[in-house]
Amino acid sequence: MKFDTILRIGTKLFLPFILVFALYVQFHGDYGPGGGFQAGVIAAAMVIFYAITFGLEAAKQAMPPLVLEVLIGLGVFLYTGVGIVAMLKGGEFLNYSALKHDPVHGQHLGILLVELGVLITVFATMTAIFYAFVGRGR
């Protein structure tokens, strides 16, 4: 693997674009096709690509498993958190209209936050499952 210069440089060139595409899919999901799941899976594919080229240890340094385990929970926490904040502000659970004074703005904000929660959980889970499978072989 040490001598595959083209592969290593090529991978390094590709990675930022994959990440930018994932973020585009995430935040443009309101206006075009896309959303939290797709973006999470694409971002996880970026880490998997990195791990395939540079080895599992390098990937684990770039994205430590401990951080991933925290992120798995954080996404669900963010999602339910939005619901509970909506409840505290006087709406029903997950009724985003209560988040802001203008119900339409509230809806938009709620959708954005919820999709972010989905992105975090899907990305962290997919990457953690990949680590678990690949790390099992040693």
């Binding site: 999901g29 206006y31 959303g35 985003y96 703005h105 809806q107 989905v118």
Partner: peptide, 24 residues
């Protein structure tokens, strides 16, 4: 109601938010 033109996103995250929560 939501100012989101992609109907799939608005249904997924807002109208059917419970489904998506369960899925997450």
């Amino acid at each position: 109601e939501t100012s989101v033109p992609n109907v799939v996103t608005s249904v997924l995250a807002s109208y059917r938010g419970f489904d998506t929560l369960g899925e997450t």
